[in-house]
Design a protein around this nucleic acid. Structure first.
Length: 352
DNA sequence: GAGTGTATGCCCTCTGCTGA
DNA sequence: TCAGCAGAGGGCATACACTC
């Protein structure tokens, strides 16, 4: 028994409709609408097809196109925390560059456990993404390994991994910490602490290493550090309390990011200490609105939008040449001096 | 009759090949 | 040189054959 043919929705205009309207074959339509194949047909046919496409309201079906081309023209973006203000500028940079080449972004929050990340990654693969920009990388990252195993082009942004398996775009975290510590030493601080980020993440690790190096160069103690459990305000508050409990004479704190720095604000307020009169604080990232808190946060500005643009560019290059050696692009940070840093208080608190 | 496996049509576009 | 034909591409739904 012959089954009835499935019919397309009446509203959907396809390449056939354009062909019928223009009185040409569908292959002629395909070539006329493809800039790289346009030279194969006459200018007159190109004009006729384009006018017909406009007249019938034709919109190319990328899904169908992907069947033959093997390219979905969709790029997945994995974020560790979609609520963190660091990421919107990165996403914007990525989208700007991708859109110029006809790609769309599929953004996913891949926070939580390794199983969560695996699930999100699987969804990306199921949607046939052409490649991935990963902002979730840990120093030994399974997502990156999986992408390489599946031959899916991948670029890391903001966070790197230790084995250099994929191209990456990162901030110069060593230089960031050097600038932050130099700034505080320049104000007269000699007892500086660091609320570090998680050490299993490249950003947390590099910044704590950078802090130690910068402290050594300035001939001050480099061991006044406590690691926050997460890059969050809450974790920053807890870690700051521990830091001040261990090293009570500290007059300045370099936080591994701005959220941790805001957690330090909370901690100081709870202890009845003032910023910057009692303790100066430097953040990291320069996320939106930290210039509007009280006091406005001195922080290290990272070129997040440029970071996104570069990452997208590296991915596009990866599409063209998948087997090239992974490169690392390092962007220069900039210190934004605001009201949260000042000269240290005259008297110093007792070491605990 | 229920369950399973296989074959085929369909979706839409791209592209190699052929002929005018 | 240009235009048209025809097959391919992956996944899904469905028809059909077969087994239990």
């Amino acid at each position: 028994m012959k089954r009835p043919a499935r019919t397309k929705p009446a509203s959907r205009v396809t390449i056939r409709d354009v062909a019928a309207h223009a009185h040409v074959n569908i292959s002629t339509v395909s070539r006329a609408l493809n800039p790289e194949a346009r030279h194969l047909i006459s200018d007159e046919a190109v004009v006729r097809v384009i006018e017909s496409a406009r007249a019938v309201g034709y919109r190319p079906n990328k899904l169908a196109s992907a069947l033959t081309s093997g390219r979905s023209h969709v790029v997945g973006i994995l974020l560790p925390d979609i609520e963190n203000a660091v990421f919107p500028p990165i996403i914007r940079g990525i989208e700007e560059r991708l859109a110029a080449e006809g790609y769309a972004a599929l953004i996913a929050n891949a926070a939580g456990s390794a199983a969560d990340r695996e699930r999100v990654l699987e969804q990306m693969f199921e949607r046939q993404v052409d490649g991935l920009v990963v902002a979730t990388a840990s120093r030994d990252d399974q997502v990156v390994r999986r992408c390489i195993l599946e031959h899916v082009p991948v670029v890391l942004v903001n966070r790197s991994e230790d084995h250099r398996l994929a191209p990456e775009v990162v901030n110069d975290d060593f230089y960031s910490m050097q600038m932050a510590v130099d700034h505080l030493v320049g104000l007269g601080h000699r007892k500086i602490g660091h609320v570090a980020g998680p050490n299993n993440l490249a950003t947390g690790f590099a910044r704590s290493q950078g802090f130690q190096l910068a402290a050594q160069r300035n001939r001050i103690a480099n061991s006044h550090m406590v690691e926050a459990a997460e890059f969050t305000r809450g974790a920053g508050r807890v870690a700051c309390a521990e830091l001040l409990k261990r090293y009570r004479s500290i007059t300045a704190i370099v936080a591994a990011n701005d959220l941790i720095a805001l957690g330090c604000y909370d901690c100081l307020a709870a202890l009845g200490l003032r910023c910057p009169q009692d303790v100066s604080i430097v953040g990291h990232n320069d996320i939106p609105l930290v210039d509007m808190v009280n006091p406005p946060l001195t922080t290290v500005r990272i070129q997040h939008r440029e970071m996104g643009r570069k990452a997208a560019q590296l991915l596009l290059e990866r599409f063209a040449a998948p087997d090239t050696k992974p490169v690392r692009v390092t962007l220069a940070p900039e210190l934004m001096v605001r009201g949260s840093t000042a000269a240290p208080p005259r008297g110093s608190r007792q070491e605990g």
